[in-house]
């Protein structure tokens, strides 16, 4: 069971459906918010805590699938659970590929829905955690000067100080100084730790010079 600050949004044009879902989720101790249309939901500011959206596929105005596309286009990462009275397989496949948590045909078993909600909220929580770690790692990396960042990138590819100097046209000694500052600023002691930070920051891993795919000599 997730923390009580988790929010479940329901978007459905059918009033009785909304009402029954509100009760079901309330009975499962979820906080809920009801919307009669997808556009109503988009008027609400994004939720900071873990959340998920239960959305009806067939609705007047913006339908479920179009709503999902809109979110992806605007880089919103709400976890979506689709419910539908007459979904078909292509529609389902499309929604799942696009990252939906589940696609439930009505009538669904209430537990099925609740499990999906649980999963969606877990994904949401994890997402939030990853986002905070990413933000932290990015904040550390932003402390580096441009020169230190260049050195860091080459070090991350496994080059020796001498090689880094050669690449950047500086003395080995200077490289050592930049490297030390870099390690200090990132509060790390090894290259392995550097790699973890880069991963968390979701930065594209640097490529070692001479090993770029277009430079690999053919056998």
């Amino acid at each position: 069971m997730m923390s009580s600050d988790a929010l479940v949004f329901v978007i459905d044009d059918d009033q009785s459906m909304r009402k029954s879902l509100a009760r079901l989720l309330d009975a499962a101790h979820y906080k809920t918010e009801m919307f009669t249309s997808a556009s109503d939901f988009l008027l609400r500011s994004a939720c900071a805590g873990p959340s998920c959206v239960i959305v009806d596929v067939k609705m007047p105005g913006l339908n479920g699938i179009a709503f999902q596309e809109f979110l992806i286009q605007h880089s919103r990462d709400e976890q979506l659970i689709f419910i539908t009275a007459h979904g078909d397989i292509p529609m389902c496949a499309k929604a799942m590929k696009a990252g939906a948590v589940d696609f439930l045909p009505k009538p669904f078993k209430p537990n099925q829905l609740l499990e999906s909600v649980e999963r969606a909220l877990a994904r949401s929580t994890e997402q939030l955690f990853r986002a905070s770690e990413r933000d932290h790692a990015r904040a550390l990396l932003q402390r580096l000067t441009p020169r230190e960042y260049e050195v860091m990138e080459l070090v991350a590819t496994g080059l020796l100080n001498k090689q880094v100097g050669g690449e950047l046209g500086m003395a080995e000694k200077t490289v050592k100084t930049h490297r030390a500052h870099m390690m200090q600023k990132l509060r790390i002691t090894s290259v392995a730790e550097l790699m973890v930070i880069l991963q968390k920051a979701e930065v594209t891993p640097p490529v070692r010079p001479g090993l770029r795919p277009d430079c690999i000599p053919s056998a």
Binding site: D14, M17, K19, S20, L24, I83, A85, P107, F108, P110
Partner: peptide, 8 residues
């Protein structure tokens, strides 16, 4: 639609 609501 109504069946799902009833179950819920």
């Amino acid at each position: 639609q109504p069946l799902a609501a009833i179950v819920n």
